[in-house]
Amino acid sequence: MSDERLIEELKQNEAEPFLPIERTLVRVSLTVGLVLLVVLALINHFLPAA
């Protein structure tokens, strides 16, 4: 497939529904990410770099 056809397809860009599994992926990622960052920040606070 040529780039031109791909770009044409991009311009038309038919909508695709945002599935519940995608919503779950985004929510779980963000939640786990933020929780782990807080945990690491606490470790960083109590075990400062030498």
């Binding site: 990410g33 075990l47 770099a49």
Partner: peptide, 26 residues
């Protein structure tokens, strides 16, 4: 000691790139 501290902090980069950046950009 400093090098191992940097390695530990490298973990934060993994979390940020995969779990936060990716989810938001997607």
């Amino acid at each position: 000691s400093l090098a191992s501290s940097i390695l530990l902090r490298g973990v934060a980069a993994i979390i940020e790139a995969y779990l936060i950046y990716w989810a938001v950009v997607y």
